[in-house]
Structure formats: structure tokens, C-alpha cells
Design a protein around this nucleic acid. Structure first.
Length: 113
DNA sequence: AACGTGACTTATT
DNA sequence: GAATAAGCCACGT
């Protein structure tokens, strides 16, 4: 039975695997899901992820800006969470992508590595 | 089925 | 280099 996971489910899996103290970009997740150009859809997936205990605060945009912080209820919550995990911000309030940018492993069919 | 929206990204001006 | 435009995919109405 081929349970074709929806794009959303795929995103949830990836986001749930983001290491603590690291962040990733929507585009990266979208690419891992198979659609590189679906960065926006990844954000949509987060909407459905609300209440799924997913570390959505570890997902930032390509610039390291916390674009989704607005949806946390409190704009400062996302930054606080990341700071609590050891993530540092530059003076512009962005995540230092050079150090914290983490790209999820591509889920190949039966990837044995 | 179609139009509009959205937590993005890339290219062009 | 900054600002604007278009492209992209999925969901909601």
C-alpha cells in the first residue's frame, strides 16, 4: 500500500527532524519534499501544523529572517525559543545562517547510505 | 472549476 | 545594492 504522503506530512516529518539549535529555510524543506519551488506551500503546511508540536520556530526564510514569527501569537516568542536553543541572532534580528543553516537529509526511497 | 491568498524564492529593473 | 515583478504550489471560498 503506497501511502503517498501529502506534501504537508512530508514537511511535518522534516521539520520535526530539525536538530535543536539549528534552523532551515522553507525552500530547503520544499526541495527535500520534492518540490523546490514550493517554498510558499511549506509555509502553508505550517498553518496546518499548528498544534502538531512541530518546532516551526526553527523554520526561517532564506535570509534568516523570522518571517513566520507573526503567526506564533507573539512576535517575540519565536526569537526567544531559538535563543533558548542556543541560536544567536545578529544585530538585525536575523539568524546567523552561516552557522545555523541546516539542510534536511533527502529522503530517498530506501536510502541506505 | 475558477479566483484569490499565503509563514517564499529568484530574476529583472 | 535596493525595490519591484513574476513564478511557484497547495488550500479556501
Amino acid at each position: 500500500m503506497k501511502k503517498k504522503k501529502d506534501f504537508f506530512d512530508r514537511v511535518y516529518e522534516v521539520v520535526a527532524k530539525i536538530p535543536k539549535g539549528k534552523v532551515t529555510s522553507y525552500g530547503a524543506i520544499a526541495e527535500v519534499c520534492g518540490i523546490k519551488s514550493a517554498a510558499r506551500t511549506v509555509g502553508w503546511a505550517m498553518h496546518g501544523a499548528a498544534g502538531n508540536s512541530l518546532p516551526c520556530h526553527r523554520v526561517v526564510n532564506r535570509n534568516g529572517e523570522l518571517t513566520g514569527k507573526i503567526h506564533f501569537g507573539d512576535p517575540d516568542l519565536m526569537e526567544s525559543l531559538l535563543r533558548s536553543e542556543g541560536v544567536k541572532f545578529d544585530k538585525e534580528g536575523r539568524v546567523i545562517m552561516d552557522k545555523y543553516n541546516w539542510v534536511p537529509p533527502k529522503k530517498r526511497k530506501k536510502r541506505k547510505n
